[in-house]
Amino acid sequence: MSDWEPKIVAFLCNSCSYGAADLAGVGRMQYPANIRIIRIPCAGRMSPKFVLSALREGADGVWVSG
């Protein structure tokens, strides 16, 4: 189990955090590769269903960012 890496589903708002992620990419910054990003139109699109279904499909963590 020592090579276990967490899988984190990240729900990012299109105009806020997704933009920040894009900028981080453009700036060639290093960050952990454990996150799987899902772009949502706005953090208001977020629903508890998404969180539970991410956990159900085996995610180790869920991160919502506006």
């Binding site: 967490p6 920040a20 981080a24 996150i35 969180v51 180790d60």
Partner: peptide, 28 residues
């Protein structure tokens, strides 16, 4: 630790990096 929320502006790429690292470490 499994469910985290944050608020990042599209200009804050450094904050983005910080929060990603923080979230990953917490879940780890």
């Amino acid at each position: 630790e499994r469910l985290q929320f944050s608020w990042i502006s599209s200009a804050e790429s450094t904050k983005f990096i910080d929060v990603v690292t923080e979230v990953v470490e917490a879940v780890r």
